[in-house]
């Protein structure tokens, strides 16, 4: 499942899609950035309600396939710009993190 296909299938909003064909291999949910850096794996979709600039750095360094902002969270323009500069995929949805991750994990089966 690619990031673009995930967003299309679940009708989630594409915030920034530098690498639409990036393959999703798993997922991680978390808002504490060091937990994410300790636990998330390369290729994961990362579900979070955090939307500050550091999220871009964490996504970049952990090499996740995309960041999924849940609960209707939308990052500010400078964050989106930084994501574009660094080739980070950002998508957003209205669902709570649990519901969003359950829906997405169904698609990975």
């Amino acid at each position: 499942m690619t990031v673009e296909k995930l967003a299309q299938t679940l009708n989630w909003k594409v915030v920034s899609l530098s690498e639409p064909d990036r393959e999703i291999t798993g997922g991680y949910c978390g808002d504490l950035l060091s937990w994410v850096m300790g636990r998330a794996e390369s290729g994961d979709m990362w579900f979070t309600i955090m939307s500050n600039m550091n999220v871009v750095a964490v996504a970049h360094l952990t090499d996740v396939a995309c960041v999924v902002f849940t609960e209707g969270v939308m990052p500010d323009a400078p964050v989106i710009e930084a994501a574009k500069r660094n080739g980070i995929n950002l998508i957003a949805c209205e669902e709570p993190t649990y519901t969003a991750s359950v829906k997405a994990s169904e698609l990975l089966k």
């Binding site: 504490l32 060091s34 937990w35 300790g38 999220v55």
Partner: peptide, 15 residues
């Protein structure tokens, strides 16, 4: 409130 300060910094460096 920015998502840091979880007490995982040095443990992650060790990990």
């Amino acid at each position: 409130s920015l998502g840091f300060g979880a007490g995982m910094g040095l443990p992650n460096m060790k990990r």
